[in-house]
Design a protein around this nucleic acid. Structure first.
Length: 821
RNA sequence: GGGCGAUUAGCUCAGGGGUAGAGCGCUACCUUCACACGGUAGAAGUCGCAGGUUCAAAUCCUGCAUCGCCCA
C-alpha cells in the first residue's frame, strides 16, 4: 500500500473530482459494439425542464442510479440515457410573461424559438443537478423532445398509428381547461374537494305544480336538456314523461328516469345539462338527448345562454341566482362538499365541451394492458393495480390534440376544397404543417392544389410515450430490439396513469409488444412537516441546498434509507446528517485500515493464520453480501442501506477493529503471522464494504478505492469492478458462533467496567473465566488474545468448569471474575 | 361508494410465523494512539381494536376504527 488516505476529508472536492473524471474516462458509456455482455436498459424519465431539480426528482434519479450502478457491477452493459421532455404550457406562459407578448402575436416558429431558448437554459441547470447527484448517465445519449430529430419520431409514430387505424378525428365531449384554452386528457384531470353551494330550484311542470331540482351549477340551466329521477323513486313516479319548463328559457323538456340519479342527493331530482359533468355525457348518449353548448373555450357564456351571453360562468351564476330569486323559484341554498374536476397544471375547474379533436383508440387495448401489466415485475408489487384499474376504468379514448403552440405539430393537412385529410409520409418528417405544405401536387381526391394545415399540436405525453422505443434506437438502428423492451421503467406513483399507461398503449399499438419488463415506483417526497412539499407551505427544501450542506453521497443515503420503495418519504435533515456522519466514519475507518496496511502486500494463495474473530467477520461479510444482493435485486434500497451501515459501523468498526487493535500493535508479542491475518481481513472486508456501498454512495467509495485498491484490483473504477457473488460456501456458521461468544465475553467485561464507572482502558490484573464446559473453554482460549488485548487484561485464566462471578449475557454457564489494579 | 396502502419506542420510520429493530431525542459514563462528525452502557413499545387459523401471530385470514393515496 503506497498511498495514504489523507486525514482531511472534503466530500465536496471528492464528489466534484469524480464527477468530472468519470465523464472524462467515459466509464458509463454504453458499448454498442459489445455483443458478449448482457444489456440492461433503463427507461430514464425525460423530466420537464422547469429549471429546478427538486427533491422528488432526487428521489427518483437516485433509485434508478443505484439500480444502474448495481447492474453494471453485476456485469451488464448498462444503457442509461437521458432526455428532456420540453414541450408544454408552462414554458409558453413563461415566454409570454418575459417577452410581454401573446403566443398569437408571433408566427409559431418564432414563438417556438423563444421557448427553445428558455428551455435550453433550464436544462443546463437541471443537468448540473443530475451530475451533482452523481448519476451514472451516459451523456452521449442526451436528447430533447423539442428537437426536430425527436419530433420526427413522434410524428412517425403518429403516422404509423394513423395507418394502423388507431388514430381518428372526431367530435366528442372532452375535458377542457378554460384557462389553458385547450383540451386535456382524462389523465390530466385531478379532483379536489371543495365546498360548493347546492341550489334548490323549482321547475314548473307544464300541467300543474312543480319539481324541485338540486344543482351546484345554476348557470347551466340554459343548457338543461332533461330532468331526471331514479326509476326506483316512488316520490316522482307520477311525473315521469311529463313536460317541465326550463327556467329563464321558453323551452320545455321531458322528465325521464335514469338509474344514475342518486335518490338521496338533494331532492332526488336533477337536471341534465350539456355538459355539467361526465355523468351528463353518459346520460345524453344513453337517452340520445340534444346538445346545447352554452360555454365557450374561454369559459364564457355563449349566445345559447340567452341574456347571460358574454358573462363568465361565475358572473352568470350570480345573475342566474338573482333571477331565480326574483322569480320566487329558488327554494334554498345549502353548502355541500363536492369533488371538483380541475386541470392538473393550473388547478382551474375544467369544463366539458363538445369539440372536434384527434383521438387515439386506447380503450380497445385495455385487456392487453392488463395482461402485460401482470407479466411485468413491479416494485413494489401492489402498484400494478394502479395501472390495471386505471386502464379498466377509462370511459373515453385519449384526446391527443392540443390547442397550443410549443408542441410537436400534427403532420396533417386538409384539402381546402373537399376537406380530404392529407397525412404526411414518413420520409417528409419532421415537418411543421403550419409552415410547410404537403409534398404533393394536388389533392388525391379532388385535384385541388390548396391545402390548409392542421393547427392543433400533439399532447406532450404523445412525445414522451415512445421513450422505450426511442431509447433503444428506433427507428434508425436496425438492432434496436436489442434494448427493447426496456429492462426497467422508473416512475413516480403519480404518473402511473399517464406515463406508464401511455407508454404501454403506444408500444402495444405500434409494435405489439410491452415497452418495459419491470416497473420501479417511487413515492412522493413530503416536506419536513410530513405534508406535501410546497413552496407556499414553507416546507420546501431545494436540492442544491442539501447538496451544498452535505453533498450527494449523504443525500443519496437519505433516499435509500428513507423508507420502503414506493412509499412517500418526508424530507428529513437528520437522515441526511446521519448519512454525512456515516461517510466520515467510513473515511476514518479506511484511514485506519490504510495506515495498518503500510507493510502489507496482498498475496495470492497464502494461508493466513486466521483467528476466530477474523473468520467471524469474514463469514459475516459473506452473509451481508447475500442480504444486500437480495435487497438490491428486489429494489429494497432501504434494506440494503441499513444492512451495510449497520455492518460497517457496528460490526466492522465497533466490534472487529476495536478487538484486533492489540494484535495489530504488538506483532512482537502475538507473532507477525497473526498481525498479517488481521491485515488480510481488514483489506478484504473493507473492499467488500466499498463494493456493496458503491451503488449508493458512489463518490466516497471511488475515492477510497482509488487510493487503496485500484492498483492491485486493476479496475479503472470501483464501479467497473465485479459485484461479489454471494457464496454459501464462504459462510462459516461455526466461526460465527465462536466469534459471537468471544464478543460476548468482551462486551460483558466492558459492561462491568461501565457499571463500576471505570474508563474502558482500566487495566485488569487478572481475569478468571469459568467457561462451564470444555468446548466453550476451548473457544475462549482461542480468542483469549483478542479478549485480553481489548479489555486490557494482564493475566487471563480460562477454566473449563462452572464457577461463580459475573454471568455473561446469553451464556448462563459462563462466569468471570475481574481483579482490577 | 370502490380499489390500494398505512396504523410498531417521545418523534420519523424499517421489518415481518419463532425472545421487538434503526435514526433522532433521552440517561449515565469514557477525551482509549482511525474517528467527540467518536465510543461504552442504559431507559423506553402487551407492534390500532376485536375475533379466527397455528405448537407458536406484531407478522397470515376476517371484521371494525382512524389516516393517506388513487378513482367514481
Amino acid at each position: 500500500m503506497k498511498q495514504a488516505v489523507p486525514k482531511k476529508f472534503n466530500i465536496f472536492e471528492v464528489e466534484e473530482k469524480w464527477q468530472k473524471k468519470w465523464e472524462e474516462m467515459g466509464v458509463y458509456h454504453f458499448d454498442w459494439k459489445d455483443k458478449k455482455r448482457r444489456t440492461f436498459s433503463i427507461d430514464t424519465p425525460p423530466p420537464y425542464p422547469s429549471g429546478e431539480f427538486h427533491m422528488g426528482l432526487v428521489l427518483n434519479w437516485t433509485y434508478f442510479d443505484i439500480v444502474a450502478r448495481y447492474k453494471r457491477m453485476r456485469g451488464y452493459n448498462v444503457y442509461f440515457p437521458q432526455g428532456w421532455d420540453c414541450h408544454g404550457l408552462p414554458t409558453e406562459v413563461e415566454v409570454e410573461k418575459r417577452h410581454k407578448i401573446k403566443k398569437t402575436d408571433l408566427p409559431p416558429d418564432q414563438f417556438r424559438r423563444l421557448c427553445e431558448k428558455l428551455v435550453g437554459k433550464n436544462i443546463g441547470a437541471m443537468k448540473k443537478a443530475i451530475t451533482n447527484l452523481g448519476c451514472s448517465i451516459d451523456w452521449t445519449t442526451e436528447y430533447k423532445t423539442m428537437d426536430p430529430d425527436y419530433w420526427r419520431r413522434t410524428q412517425l409514430s403518429f403516422v404509423l398509428l394513423h395507418k394502423k387505424g388507431f388514430i381518428y378525428r372526431g367530435t366528442h365531449p372532452v375535458n377542457w381547461c378554460p384557462r389553458c384554452e385547450t383540451a386535456i386528457a382524462d389523465a390530466e384531470v385531478e379532483y379536489e374537494t371543495r365546498t360548493a353551494q347546492l341550489h334548490y330550484v323549482k321547475f314548473k311542470l307544464e300541467d300543474d305544480g312543480f319539481l324541485t331540482i338540486a344543482t351546484t351549477r345554476p348557470e347551466l340551466i340554459p343548457a338543461c336538456v332533461t330532468v331526471a329521477v331514479n326509476p326506483q323513486d316512488e316520490r316522482y313516479r307520477q311525473y315521469v314523461g311529463k313536460k317541465i319548463r326550463v327556467p329563464t328559457t321558453n323551452r320545455t323538456v321531458e322528465v325521464i328516469t335514469d338509474d344514475l340519479v342518486a335518490q338521496d342527493f338533494g331532492t332526488g331530482v336533477v337536471m341534465i345539462c350539456t355538459y355539467g359533468d361526465k355523468a351528463d355525457v353518459k346520460s345524453v348518449a344513453k337517452h340520445k338527448l340534444p346538445v346545447i353548448t352554452c360555454i365557450d373555450e374561454k369559459g364564457r357564456m355563449t349566445q345559447n345562454a340567452g341574456k347571460y351571453a358574454g358573462m363568465t360562468t361565475e358572473e352568470a351564476k350570480k345573475a342566474m341566482i338573482e333571477d331565480l330569486k326574483n322569480e320566487g323559484i329558488l327554494e334554498k341554498i345549502e353548502p355541500v362538499n363536492q369533488e371538483v374536476s380541475v386541470c392538473w397544471r393550473c388547478h382551474t375547474p375544467i369544463e366539458i365541451l363538445e369539440k372536434e379533436q384527434w383521438f387515439m383508440k386506447t380503450r380497445i387495448l385495455s385487456s392487453e394492458v392488463e395482461k402485460n401489466a401482470l407479466e411485468i415485475m413491479w416494485y413494489p408489487d401492489y402498484m400494478k393495480y394502479r395501472l390495471i384499474d386505471w386502464a379498466k376504468s377509462l370511459e373515453w379514448d385519449w384526446v391527443i390534440s392540443r390547442q397550443r403552440v410549443f408542441a410537436t405539430p400534427i403532420p396533417i393537412w386538409y384539402c381546402k376544397k373537399c376537406n380530404e385529410i392529407i397525412l404526411a409520409e414518413p420520409n417528409w418528417l419532421p415537418i411543421d404543417p403550419r409552415i410547410e405544405n404537403p409534398r404533393i401536387d394536388k389533392c388525391p381526391n379532388c385535384d385541388s392544389k390548396e391545402f390548409k394545415p392542421e393547427r392543433d399540436v400533439l399532447d406532450t405525453w404523445f412525445d414522451s410515450s415512445i421513450t422505450c422505443a426511442v431509447h433503444a434506437g428506433w427507428p434508425d438502428r436496425e438492432d434496436w430490439k436489442r434494448l427493447f423492451p426496456a429492462d426497467v421503467h422508473p416512475s413516480g406513483v403519480d404518473i402511473i396513469r399517464t406515463w406508464a399507461y401511455y407508454l404501454m398503449v403506444r408500444h402495444l399499438a405500434l409494435f405489439n409488444e410491452k415497452p418495459y419488463k419491470s416497473c420501479l415506483i417511487n413515492g412522493m417526497v413530503l416536506g419536513t412537516d410530513g405534508r406535501s412539499m410546497h413552496k407556499s407551505f414553507g416546507n420546501y427544501v431545494a436540492s442544491q441546498e442539501v447538496f451544498s450542506k452535505y453533498g450527494a453521497d449523504a443525500t443519496r443515503q437519505w433516499v435509500a434509507g428513507g423508507g420502503a420503495t414506493g412509499s412517500d418519504i418526508p424530507f428529513r435533515w437528520p437522515d441526511v446528517e446521519y448519512g454525512w456522519r456515516f461517510l466520515i466514519k467510513l473515511w476514518n475507518a479506511a484511514r485506519f485500515v490504510c495506515n495498518q496496511l503500510k507493510d502489507y502486500e496482498p498475496k495470492e494463495n497464502v494461508e493466513y493464520v486466521l483467528q476466530p474473530l477474523d473468520k467471524w467477520i469474514l463469514s459475516k461479510a459473506e452473509k451481508l453480501t447475500r442480504k444486500v444482493t437480495d435487497a438490491l435485486e428486489g429494489c429494497q434500497f432501504n434494506i440494503a442501506m441499513e444492512e451495510i451501515r449497520n455492518f460497517t459501523w457496528h460490526v466492522f468498526c465497533d466490534c472487529y477493529i476495536e478487538a484486533v487493535k492489540d494484535r495489530l500493535y504488538k506483532p512482537d508479542f502475538y507473532g507477525k503471522e497473526k498481525r498479517e491475518a488481521v491485515q488480510y481481513t481488514l483489506y478484504t472486508v473493507l473492499y467488500r464494504i466499498l463494493q456493496l456501498l458503491a451503488p449508493i454512495t458512489p463518490h466516497v467509495t471511488e475515492e477510497i478505492y482509488q487510493i487503496m485498491y485500484a492498483e492491485e484490483k486493476s479496475h479503472k473504477s470501483v464501479h467497473l469492478s465485479l459485484w461479489p457473488t454471494p457464496d454459501e460456501k464462504h459462510v462459516d456458521e461455526e466461526a460465527e458462533k465462536r466469534g459471537d461468544l468471544i464478543m460476548a465475553v468482551i462486551t460483558e467485561v466492558r459492561r462491568e467496567k461501565a457499571e463500576k464507572r471505570m474508563p474502558l482502558n482500566t487495566q485488569i490484573k487478572k481475569l478468571i473465566i469459568y467457561a462451564g464446559g470444555k468446548d466453550t473453554a476451548e473457544i475462549i482460549m482461542e480468542g483469549r488474545e483478542d479478549i485480553s488485548g481489548t479489555c486490557k487484561v494482564a493475566n487471563i485464566e480460562v477454566l473449563p468448569k462452572k464457577g461463580d462471578g459475573r454471568e455473561i449475557k446469553d451464556y448462563s454457564d459462563i462466569h468471570f471474575f475481574a481483579e482490577y489494579q
